[in-house]
Design a protein around this nucleic acid. Sequence first.
DNA 1: TATGAATGAGCATTCATTCAT
DNA 2: TATGAATGAATGCTCATTCAT
Lengths: 208, 208, 208, 208
Amino acid sequence: MSPESKEAVLETWRRNEIAQATHRVLARRGPAGLSMQAIADEAGIAKGTLYLYFEDREALLEHAVDATFGELMARLETVLLPGRPIAETLPETVRALILFFDEKKDFLRAYMSMRYGDGCAEDVRHKRRKRTHYQSYLKLLAAAFGQAAARGEVKPQDPDRLAALVADGISAVLLRRLDERPPRPAEEDVLWISELLLRGLLVPGRNS
Amino acid sequence: MSPESKEAVLETWRRNEIAQATHRVLARRGPAGLSMQAIADEAGIAKGTLYLYFEDREALLEHAVDATFGELMARLETVLLPGRPIAETLPETVRALILFFDEKKDFLRAYMSMRYGDGCAEDVRHKRRKRTHYQSYLKLLAAAFGQAAARGEVKPQDPDRLAALVADGISAVLLRRLDERPPRPAEEDVLWISELLLRGLLVPGRNS
Amino acid sequence: MSPESKEAVLETWRRNEIAQATHRVLARRGPAGLSMQAIADEAGIAKGTLYLYFEDREALLEHAVDATFGELMARLETVLLPGRPIAETLPETVRALILFFDEKKDFLRAYMSMRYGDGCAEDVRHKRRKRTHYQSYLKLLAAAFGQAAARGEVKPQDPDRLAALVADGISAVLLRRLDERPPRPAEEDVLWISELLLRGLLVPGRNS
Amino acid sequence: MSPESKEAVLETWRRNEIAQATHRVLARRGPAGLSMQAIADEAGIAKGTLYLYFEDREALLEHAVDATFGELMARLETVLLPGRPIAETLPETVRALILFFDEKKDFLRAYMSMRYGDGCAEDVRHKRRKRTHYQSYLKLLAAAFGQAAARGEVKPQDPDRLAALVADGISAVLLRRLDERPPRPAEEDVLWISELLLRGLLVPGRNS
DNA sequence: TATGAATGAGCATTCATTCAT
DNA sequence: TATGAATGAATGCTCATTCAT
C-alpha cells in the first residue's frame, strides 16, 4: 500500500532474522559468547551489516529480547481477557508461561541473567526505552488483577505491585523447571502455583 | 586472645575494604563497569594489590557477594527459627529482607543482574562453587516451610519450590521499592506480602 | 592462473610484512622487547590487526622464524644435493650460511637466544610443533653426511650427531662475525671452517 | 685478617646461596618461571633481601651463571695446562665438559636459552660485564690452541675463533645428550668428538 | 546495500622494584 | 639487616564499532 512498504517489510524481516540468530547464539554460547561476530555468523551476514539495522549492540539486544517477549505477549493477550474471573485466567496465564518457557528453556536461562540491565545507577539515559515488553506483561497482569479487584473477586490492593510479585514468583518456578530431570508435568506446577496464589499457604481454620 | 595474628586481622580488614569498594563500584557503574581497575581506584589501592588479597577476579567477586549475603543470612537466622509458627516468621522474614535491601539498594539492583551467572548451557564447570549464599537462603526458607507443613500449618507441598517462589516474589517487590519516590513505608509492604502469601488473593466466600 | 584469490595473496603479503616487522623489532629491541604492541607499531598497524593474521603470539613468532629459515632452507637445498662429494658441498654450505647470516646479523643474534625455548624440564607440551626448520636444516646436513659415509668419503659415524656438531660449530663462527669490525672476508672463514672440519686440527705427520 | 672480612664473607656466602637457589628454580621451572619471588622463596629469604645483595635482576642472574661457570672453569683449569699436547688436553677437556653437564642437565638446558643475552643491538651498556666466565672458558681454550700452534702441533690459525667453533660444536653434542634415553656412554662421545676435531671428517687418502 | 579488515580502548593478570617498618 | 606489602607499567588478547570498498 504505502510506497515504502517493500523496504519497510524487508527491514522488519531482517531485524527479526537477526533477533532469532541472537537467540540461538544466546542459547548455545550464553551471554558471554554473545558477540556481534557470533550473531552475524549465526545470521549469515557480515558484522557491519548488523549496524545497518541496529544503532548499536544494546539496541540489537533490546530488540532481540522484545521480539521474543512479543510472542509471549501475543499468547497472553488471548488469555488475560478483561471480564474473565481471575480464578480462571490466573491458571491459564501460568500455563501459557510454562508452556512458552518450556519451549525456550535456553532463552529463559540466558535472558534471566540479563533482565536487570546493567543496573547502573548513574546511566539512566536508556531507561525508558528498555524492558518494554516485560513492562507490558506486567501491565497486562496488573490490569487483570485490577479488574478482578473491581469486581470484588480479590482483595483490593495495588495491582502493579501484585503483578510484579506474581510474575517474579512464577519466574522462579520456571527457572527451577529448567534444571529438573525429568521435567515435572506442566499441569502440576500450573495447579500448584495457582492454588498458592489464589488461596494462600495456610490451611484454613488452622490459624487464628 | 584470638589465635589470629595481627596480619590475619589486617588481611581480613583489607578483604572487606575491597568488598565494600566492589559494592560501591557495582552500585555506581553496574556490572559492566566492574573492572579490577575500577575496584582498585575505588578502594584507593593499586590494581596489583587486589591480587595480594584475592586469587583472581572471580574469587574477589565471590567474596564481595558472599560477605554481603553473609550479613543477610545472619539476620535471617535469628528470624527463621525452627518451631515458630509460619504466620509469625514469614512477616518477620519479609521485614528483614526489606530493611536489609533498603540499606543496600544499589547492591541489590546490580546483584540481581548477576545472579544467573553466564547462563551458558554448555559450560557447567563452576556451578557448584557459586551462589552458595543464595542457596543457603533458599534452604533456610525451605526448612521453615517444611516444618510448618509438618506441623500442619501449611498445605503439604515441595518446600524447595515454594521457597523459590516466595523468595523471588519477594525480590520482585524489593526491586520495585528501589525506584519508588518517596519509598513506601516498609511495614505496609511487609503486611501486604505476608497476607498475600499466607491467605491468597481471593476474597473468601466469594469464589466457588 | 593461480587458484589463490586476491584475498589469499593479500593475506600472505600481510603475514610476511608482519614477519619482517617482527625481525626488525627483534633486531632492534631484542627478544625481551618483542611485544605485540612493538610488532604492531613497527608494522604500522594496530595491535588487534595482528590477531587477524595470527592465532596468537606464538603462532606469529613461529611464522616469523619459519619464514626466514624457509629462505635459508631453500638456499641450502640447492647446495646440499645428494651425490656431490662432501669436500665440495661442505664449503658451499658454510658459504651459504655465512652469506645468509651476514645479511641477517640482527636476526641471527636474537634468534639464537630463543632457540632453546623455555627449557623447562616439566613442560614438554609444545615440543613437537617447534623448531621445525632448524630440525630440517639438521636433517639435510645429516643426509649429506650419511651419503658421504656410504660412499666412503668420510669415516662412518652417527650422521645426526655429526650434523649437530657441525651446525653449532658453524653457528659459533657466524656469531663471532657479528661483532667483528671490520668484518672478516667471508671466503676466509669458509675455507678455514671447511678445512678444519674436513682434515682436522692436527698437522699430519707431527702426531703419533 | 682484614677488619671487614666477617661481613665480606657473609656477603659472599649469601650471594652464593642465592645463586644456588636460582639454579634450582631454573632447573625446576625453566627460564619463564625464574621470578624474583621464586628465587627468594627457594633461598628462604624475602624478595626485598635479594636487592641487598644484587643491584637488580640482571646482576643476580649474571652472578648465578658465573658461579656455576666458575666451578666448571676450576675443573678446566686443571686440564688445560700450558705445555700439554693438544691431542691429550682436547679429549680431557671434552670429558670434563660432558661430566660437568651430565651432572647439571637442567641447568645446561635452561642456560642455553639465555646464553646470548637479550641480543639487543641498541642496549650495549652491560655488554662488558656479561658472560665473563663463558669468555674465560673460551680464552682458556684459545690459549691451549695458541700454544699448540706455537709448538707446531696444530695448523696456525686464529685461536679465538677456533676456540669458539670447538666450544659450540661441543655444546651441540652436550645438548643432544640431554634428550638421549638411555644416555650414550660419555667416553664414546669424548673419543668421537676428539677424533673428529683432531683428524677431521675425511678418510685419509680417499680425497684428492 | 553490504562487507569485513582495521581499529584501539579496555580487560585480567604478572612481576621487578621500592620503601616504611 | 631484613622484610613483604604495595606499586604500576607492561603484557597478551578481545571485541564493539567504523569506514573504504
